[in-house]
Amino acid sequence: MSEPSAPPQPSALPGPFIRRAVLDDEQALVSLERRTWSTLHSVQPAPEPPYDAFFTHRNRPVHVMVAELDGRTVGFLRLVPPTQLACNAHVRQIQGLAVDPVGRGRGVARALLSAAYEDALRQGAGRITLRVLGHNLPARRLYESEGFVVEGVLPGEFLLDGVYVDDVLMGRPLTG
């Protein structure tokens, strides 16, 4: 007689689905921005009514990747050319990454970053950069674990909640 087999283990929670944003995502992204806003990661004033604009002439759906879990928008990443100059067309810059608290710990930020690397490579970029507030240690740890290194610091660049906060410039190559 054979030994009874171990009970099946529950499968891991499904990872996020990442896709390009569309105009119809605007209200979900506005809502996500409101839920995640904090001086830990934003130098912009807190969102105030009316809460109806996410996309602008400079922030278009083509620049935004959306993360979904169980059909719900739980994250976004904005990836743009840092300037309009041809001499740095090989660089893409992350200008916003947010994950809803309900999606944290489920690989959403890493999945968005991975999608950003792939998208930047498709666009011909060989380098990716970002700016992160010095006191945002969780984000800095994430970026460092993804291969980003500190390339510069602007000490006391922002006054947030009565405290001067550094602006940390980070970057990484996209190719070996």
Rank of each mutant, 00 (worst) to 15 (best):
V149D: 07
L169S: 11
R172S: 05
E48H: 03
S145R: 02
V168P: 02
G176R: 04
V132S: 02
M1W: 01
T39L: 14
E151Y: 03
R172W: 06
S31W: 10
R127F: 11
D161G: 10
P14Y: 09
L97I: 10
A21N: 07
V62Y: 15
G75H: 04
N59W: 13
T73I: 06
T36E: 04
H57T: 05
A46Q: 01
S114R: 10
V80L: 14
Q93A: 12
R60A: 15
R172Y: 12
A111E: 04
E157A: 11
V66C: 09
F55A: 06
A46C: 14
L142T: 06
L40H: 02
S42I: 03
E26A: 08
E68F: 12
V80I: 05
L112Q: 13
R58D: 11
P61N: 08
P49E: 07
A46F: 12
A53S: 08
A12V: 09
Q9E: 07
R104W: 10
D24L: 11
V165T: 00
R72C: 04
L160M: 09
P47W: 03
F54T: 13
Q27I: 07
A21C: 08
A98W: 00
A86E: 04
P50V: 06
L160W: 02
R35H: 07
D166A: 07
R131V: 02
L23R: 03
L77H: 04
D119S: 10
G152Y: 08
N136Y: 01
V108C: 15
R34W: 13
P4E: 05
D70F: 14
Q123K: 07
R34A: 05
Q93F: 08
G105I: 00
V150R: 01
R35P: 11
R35I: 08
R104I: 07
A53C: 12
R140F: 04
A67I: 11
L160Q: 00
N136E: 01
L85W: 15
E68P: 08
G107H: 10
G103Y: 01
L121Q: 12
G171N: 03
R78I: 05
L113A: 01
L121G: 09
F76H: 15
P16Y: 04
G75D: 04
R141P: 00
G105K: 05
A6G: 09
R19Y: 01
A120Q: 14
S38W: 02
P81F: 10
T83M: 01
